[in-house]
């Protein structure tokens, strides 16, 4: 019998001050997870980017204007996970063995309740069938299945890589894996090492310690969803803007 009394809870810590907004994480994610290039009609609203880097500005005019970049993927909510609770089809599930919020596109029938429920806009609906230019389908990653139009998909911390790491450990007769063995594509591709990844349940892990740093914050913390993605910034205005944005957005929801 497999025992899991110390199941890992994977989490991410992103150093906003190191992020240059280059977009490596976005394209590495798309390569890893077989997300197709944009349909000609796709826009910033209908495109599929499991990881999306947004620009956050301090609101001052030129030349005092400063900005940072905020890479936002699924925040892997630990409690009251909004998408899990609304899915009528059990296509979304909290994976107890990794803490990853699982999206199973083959079960999804595309009602998009979860897209509306997600406070982070981290879920993407496939408005079109995936199309790769002729021959490029040969570059698809065999560790991740392709999806069709009409289903919702999102970041799962590159779960295919977790499966591969577990298989490697199994081949060596191990049941546990070290943090270094499993890194999502975004973290691997980040040229400034802004993305840290690891097991939040392990108090000695890199991410555990960074998540308790005084520079750390999470998005929409007051919703109580306990996201497992943390951000770091030394700049006060970044913290202030993140807090203010929350209140405006919540107000927006109330009025709407």
């Amino acid at each position: 019998m497999e025992t899991n009394h110390t199941s890992p809870r994977y989490g991410m810590v992103i150093d906003v001050d190191r992020c240059t907004g280059c977009g490596n994480c976005m394209v590495a994610c798309a390569v890893e997870n077989n997300v197709p290039p944009a349909d000609p009609k796709a826009t910033e609203r209908t495109g599929t980017t499991w990881m999306r880097v947004s620009k956050l500005e301090n609101g001052l005019p030129f030349p005092e204007n400063r900005s940072v970049y905020l890479p936002v993927s699924c925040q892997q909510c630990d409690h009251h996970t909004p998408c899990v609770s609304v899915c009528p089809q059990n296509a979304v599930e909290y994976d107890t063995e990794s803490g990853i919020v699982a999206q199973i596109p083959v079960r999804c029938f595309g009602c998009r309740y979860c897209v509306t429920a997600c406070p982070y806009h981290a879920r993407y609906y496939n408005w079109w069938d995936p199309v790769w230019p002729e021959g490029m389908e040969k570059t698809l990653n065999p560790d991740v299945s392709t999806r069709m139009r009409g289903v919702v998909e999102k970041c799962n911390f590159c779960h295919g890589r977790l499966q591969a790491a577990r298989a490697k450990a199994a081949a060596e007769g191990r049941r546990t894996i070290a943090d270094a063995e499993y890194v999502p594509a975004c973290g691997e591709s980040c040229p400034t090492h802004a993305i840290h990844f690891g097991n939040l349940s392990d108090p000695n892990s890199d991410v555990s310690m960074l998540s308790k740093d005084k520079r750390a914050f999470r998005l929409l913390e007051e919703l109580g969803t306990e996201p497992k993605v943390y951000f770091l910034s030394e700049q006060d205005w970044v913290h202030a803007i993140v807090k203010n944005k929350i209140s405006t957005e919540l107000k927006g929801h109330g009025n709407g």
Binding site: E2, N4, E93, D95, T96, E97, I100, A102, I104, H159
Partner: peptide
């Protein structure tokens, strides 16, 4: 065998 039956156990 009392092994977890979560979706991600067997799906990718």
């Amino acid at each position: 065998r009392h092994v977890a039956n979560t979706c991600l156990k067997c799906h990718k």
